[in-house]
Write a protein that binds this DNA or RNA. Structure first.
Lengths: 251, 251
DNA sequence: CCATCTTATATCCAACTAACGTATTAGTTA
DNA sequence: TAACTAATACGTTAGTTGGATATAAGATGG
């Protein structure tokens, strides 16, 4: 029996053009911080299916286009070329996730600095910001609200995708350098802590946080200080080059 | 310009049947422990491309088949139905990863207990065990050796896939319950420690390991003890039901 | 020019956690 | 019953974290 089946599989392997293929898409979780809360950029759907609901920007993967390139292209097309840290998240392949046809989507996390977030909004006015309710993340799927507090229902399985994105980010925040993707090149320790607190949805102990981060060895102090404050300005740091780590994809 | 491009993307979204689609496959990293070393099960390729090299068992995703179902089917077809813990790993989508045609593959980690490993070998004799060199894991791709010490060169990008699989496993081992997928239902603390040491490629402190594991609250002591030893038999534990955690996919 | 305000930065100590070495216990075998 | 092996328990030490406090630095207003 195993013989016959592997024969069938063998044929399929060598002539898959004879079989119907699922479509392959990428969807982007464009995530930034707005008012100290994790905020994603969504497109309102104006037609079936899920008309009126809000969806992650996405697009189909070209036949000669690598997955990462497709994600970068969607970022260009749908977010006006704003710079973002792109990272593959998970691939969603339930059969009925799109009622029109079979679509497998590779979800990407796209982290935006405050400047990139503003740039995306300016260049792509259709993108609507939605703040993610921190408490909803640990459940399987997330709830999102517009700036005026109105609920933004998400289309397809996108609420699950966003929940996974934030869970993943929370998990990696403390031991990896992803957090810096949400900050400008020069930042203060307080700003770094604000980012961590916004993502984790908690408050953190300041001296302990300082120590941990400085002990990590990631931070290079520039001699410079922030300006325009009415109090003692904090020193500006930048993410140091870390030659030891080249974690490659998927960690 | 953004307008014209999103128009094109819009059309693609609604009529993707007009565009060539990549094929979508799943590949399985069938991983067990053999002689205290992480060992994977491979199929030797007998024709172009990469003839003579060894490949992960895989198969194409059916048009009406969920990704997870495709992985389970490949497990049935290629490993004779051995039980395994399946978990999606990462999706590999470089354009030239298969010279025959464009294939995007969703890699799955399939963890086998010792019994399941033996069962797979018995029912699917074509599967060849290859031990993974622990030191090669942290580099981007892995080297694999047959039981007689001969190198087993891997086909396609499969060495990268295996490296990612073991890195992921190492990362999750301490804070998640994946490690138990490599053990039978009843096991001793020493066996659990052996699994951790094999995956991590290090030795661990015994009392510290015991305490950590017991403090996790995962382990249910059965009153039973192992038999057939020539020394003091250790107590048998089982993985307790943990109602609090339903981590869902992708963590 | 000085007092005062705010926040950054540094220091200190208590509490907790994790690691390691060592002692003890409980089986098996001879 | 003694010797052996490995499980289990204990205790000490080192390291890490959390909280509080003290000091420093710049801005502002009188």
């Amino acid at each position: 029996m195993s013989q016959a089946e592997s024969e069938a599989a063998f044929l399929a392997r060598y002539d898959p053009a004879d079989y119907a293929r699922p479509a392959v898409a990428v969807d982007l979780v464009l995530l930034g911080l707005s008012g100290g809360r994790p905020t994603i950029l969504l497109l309102k759907r104006d037609r079936h299916p899920h008309a009126g609901r809000h969806a992650l920007p996405g697009g189909f993967v070209g036949i000669d286009e690598a997955l990462d390139d497709a994600a970068a292209r969607v970022l260009r097309e749908k977010a006006g070329g704003a710079r973002a840290h792109l990272e593959q998240l998970y691939t969603f392949g339930a059969v009925e996730r799109d009622p029109r046809m079979r679509i497998i989507t590779v979800a990407y996390l796209a982290l935006l600095t405050e400047a990139a977030f503003a740039e995306a909004r300016a260049r792509a006015p259709a993108l609507l910001p939605g703040t993610v309710a921190a408490a909803s993340v640990e459940a399987g799927s997330v709830t999102v609200h517009a700036a005026d507090g109105a609920a933004l229902p998400l289309a397809f399985d996108h609420a699950e995708i966003v929940a996974l994105a934030i869970r993943r980010l929370r998990g990696k925040l403390d031991y990896s350098e992803v957090g810096f993707a949400l900050l400008p090149e020069l930042f203060t320790l307080r700003q770094l802590q604000d980012v961590h607190e916004a993502i984790l949805g908690t408050t953190l102990n300041k001296p302990a946080f300082r120590r941990r981060m400085l002990d990590r060895g990631w931070l290079d102090p520039t001699g410079r200080f922030e300006t325009g404050t009415s109090y003692r300005p904090a020193e500006l740091y930048r993410l140091g080059r870390t030659p030891s780590q080249t974690p490659a994809q998927g960690d």
